[in-house]
Design a binder for these strands. Structure first.
Lengths: 125, 125
DNA sequence: TATATATATGAGCAGACATTCAGATAATAA
DNA sequence: TTATTATCTGAATGTCTGCTCATATATATA
């Protein structure tokens, strides 16, 4: 019996594998909606950059302006501004204006909890 | 008074900004060690990919083999295997062998908590 | 008005990353 | 042994991303 050439055709899948179809079906049934999964991944990804994480960790203590944060993590204010925009869009940080200065703070208690929970995991090993 | 050209020299920073030096110092004093910050970011980043998140979410229900997961998320088994290696290294998943088949499962309850906590944040808006 | 400062934005680039393909291992059965 | 299957690994590749630079916008002051 000749080996069947298994080229993957998009949308199709061969059945010559050890698939537990009932598990795959169950997983599909329970899976998050694609949009929600992406939102969730987006949140984790936002927290998954060392510098953004430094920003969040710092803002957990007290509010800081862009200049402060730039000095703190050692990058340009532009870089910080770009990152803050992303964090703002995800409702992770918020700001208040005092004259020309914008003071940033954490926007959500979930962030705190997420960081501390993750820290537990990391410190466990 | 002529404007001073502000080229950033690595390691140096100008003092002509609205820096709240005491906040920067406090932030430095409280900051996570660089290594720990990177580990934490690594964990979030690992959870910050849509397909890896799908894997974790699925394994939260029941253990699955590589083939199942590949079929479930619609990528090659190779892709899943690469992702599982990363998740294994971070102690997010573990496996048990049954003959030639490796059954993967979540390795840590923190993962569950992290996902559900993050979901709360996402669903809040 | 003009000037200075704090922040934001867009372009461009170098490095990181997720995927696929081809081939290597590991386990099982004939 | 050989053949088959499940998984893993390395290389190649196209895409994403985080940074800097240059510039624009917004606020305050002279």
């Amino acid at each position: 019996m000749a080996t069947i050439k298994k080229k993957r055709i998009p949308g199709e899948q061969c059945n010559c594998r050890c698939i537990h179809q009932e598990r795959v079906d169950a997983a599909h049934g329970q899976a998050l909606a694609s949009r929600e999964n992406d939102q969730l991944a987006g949140l984790f990804k936002a927290m998954g950059d060392p510098n953004r994480l430094r920003i969040l960790w710092a803002l957990d203590r007290e509010e800081m302006c862009v200049c402060d944060l730039a000095r703190f993590i050692g990058v340009t204010e532009s870089a910080v501004s770009h990152q803050l925009r992303l964090l703002r869009q995800l409702h992770l940080v918020a700001n208040r204006r005092k004259g020309p200065i914008l003071y940033y703070r954490l926007d959500d208690d979930h962030v705190r909890s997420l960081i501390h929970l993750a820290l537990e995991h990391v410190r466990e090993e």
